[in-house]
């Protein structure tokens, strides 16, 4: 049975140049209700085993094994997991392969998108930024190369990037019909997709968080982009996740 989770409190909602901007805050109690799903998205004991297997496989390449890699939960992982769960709950998005185990490669110039899935029978591409910075807008929205605005603009403009992501999704998707439907729509017009920019904040709700994007983000098509800010306590979320939601 599907779990119904709270949708949080909408603090602001507006349209700007065809882009929907929404701010939602979660109470500690609501965060707690999310924690089980978020936890699933962050912990994966198999992940460590596989990493060890990879490390030992290097012996067969003639190279020497790379130094051991430790995994631990980072805020950005929590943020992405929360964003994924929220979009699935509140926007009827579907992400067949979340980046649960994916260790994001910050150096890769074309690493893809944080979230790849479907919305309204079309592809949905999302970028998530997590920031506890008190200043509004936070710098994660405006950084030149990997700020939220730059990344979203790139997703809107760069057809090659989208093609790679769509292919990347192909190798993971399990629901052929859904994938084909979205791809058909996309191939009819390569602007037939949705963009989600998610900002996970450890601050009070503030519409100014989007001021940089309002000036710098250009959507590929009207009514196809959502900028969603989620306001919550990071400490609470981490506690809930690490202790199984018992705190």
């Amino acid at each position: 049975m599907a779990i119904i989770l709270p949708k949080g409190t909408t603090n602001y909602q507006e349209m700007h140049n065809g882009v929907s901007i929404i701010g939602i805050s979660y109470s500690d109690n609501q965060v707690k209700q999310y924690s089980e799903l978020v936890k699933n998205a962050c912990f994966d004991s198999d992940g460590q085993d596989e990493l060890n297997a990879y490390i030992s496989s290097i012996g067969e390449t003639g190279f020497t094994s790379t130094q051991s890699i430790l995994t631990n939960i980072k805020e950005w992982q929590l943020g992405e997991a929360l964003a994924e769960v929220h979009l699935e709950q509140c926007f009827s998005c579907h992400f067949p392969w979340s980046n649960r185990r994916d260790l994001k490669n910050p150096k890769s110039s074309l690493s893809g998108a944080d979230l790849v899935g479907y919305h309204n029978s079309e592809f949905a591409f999302g970028e998530v930024k997590t920031s506890a910075e008190q200043k509004s807008p936070p710098q994660v929205t405006s950084k030149r190369y990997d700020g939220l605005s730059a990344q979203l603009n790139k997703l809107c403009i760069d057809t090659d990037l989208r093609q790679t992501i769509i292919q990347y999704l192909f190798f993971r998707q399990k629901e052929t019909v859904k994938y084909q439907e979205a791809l058909r729509t996309y191939l009819k017009n390569q602007h037939n997709f949705y963009i989600f920019g998610v900002l996970v904040r450890n601050t009070l709700p503030n519409v100014n968080d989007w001021s940089y994007l309002k000036n710098n983000f250009t959507a590929h098509k009207k009514n196809k982009s959502y900028l969603v800010a989620l306001y919550l306590s990071f400490d609470k979320l981490r506690d809930c996740v690490t202790s199984g939601g018992e705190s």
């Binding site: 185990r101 490669n105 690493s111 893809g112 992501i165 990347y168 190798f171």
Partner: peptide, 12 residues
Amino acid sequence: ISADGGDAQLEV
């Protein structure tokens, strides 16, 4: 490994 590294471009 590249998939688990989230490196979509390298993987493809």
